[in-house]
């Protein structure tokens, strides 16, 4: 298996996952680029016996997204007073930033979800992982992973109805 083939097969799903986790497309491009840079470096040590390539790449992407928030979370503009929704920025700075600064509807609406639900939606719809693969990434059972997605969809329905 050549890295070039792996990259071509998985670049879209990695990009979509990352895009749902950071506020703008340009940020998503930077993070996706970092993901493949790290993947390229680690490719010789990739062990197919320890999991699928998709899961391996998502693992790298999750770390890259976490690094991005650590570096840039504090640089993002602060919320206006009185503009908070039910969750506070201290609870979930990523959700708060996505709600306020998300470049499109999907990211602003995902900002309303809890961090776990948002992650579950990004894995299910962005990376297109199935429940079992999601469960491995999230460290939960497949039914718990399905439940997270189910709850997230319920909340998104409420948000869309309110709009």
């Amino acid at each position: 298996m050549r890295f070039e083939d792996v990259y071509r097969e998985h670049v879209a799903s990695v990009w979509r996952y990352v895009r749902l986790r950071v506020p703008s497309d340009s940020d998503a491009e930077d993070v996706t680029s970092v993901v493949f840079e790290k993947a390229l470096t680690s490719w010789p040590s990739y062990d197919a016996g320890r999991g699928s390539v998709a899961g391996w790449l998502v693992g790298i992407a999750r770390h890259a997204v976490a690094d991005w928030w650590r570096k840039h979370g504090r640089e993002l503009p602060a919320e206006h007073p009185g503009g908070r929704t039910e969750q506070t920025a201290e609870d979930d700075p990523e959700g708060d930033a996505l709600r306020r600064l998300g470049a499109d509807d999907v990211r602003r609406r995902l900002g309303v979800l809890t961090a776990r639900e948002r992650e579950a939606v990004a894995l299910r719809f962005g990376s297109e992982l199935n429940s079992s693969e999601m469960a491995v990434v999230l460290g939960v059972s497949p039914s718990a992973a399905r439940m997270l997605v189910h709850r997230a969809l319920g909340r998104l329905r409420e948000v869309m109805d309110d709009e």
Partner: peptide, 12 residues
């Protein structure tokens, strides 16, 4: 339907 479409644009 909305989520499946909005979450899966083609990479630039």
């Amino acid at each position: 339907l909305w989520l499946a479409s909005a979450a899966r644009p083609a990479p630039p």
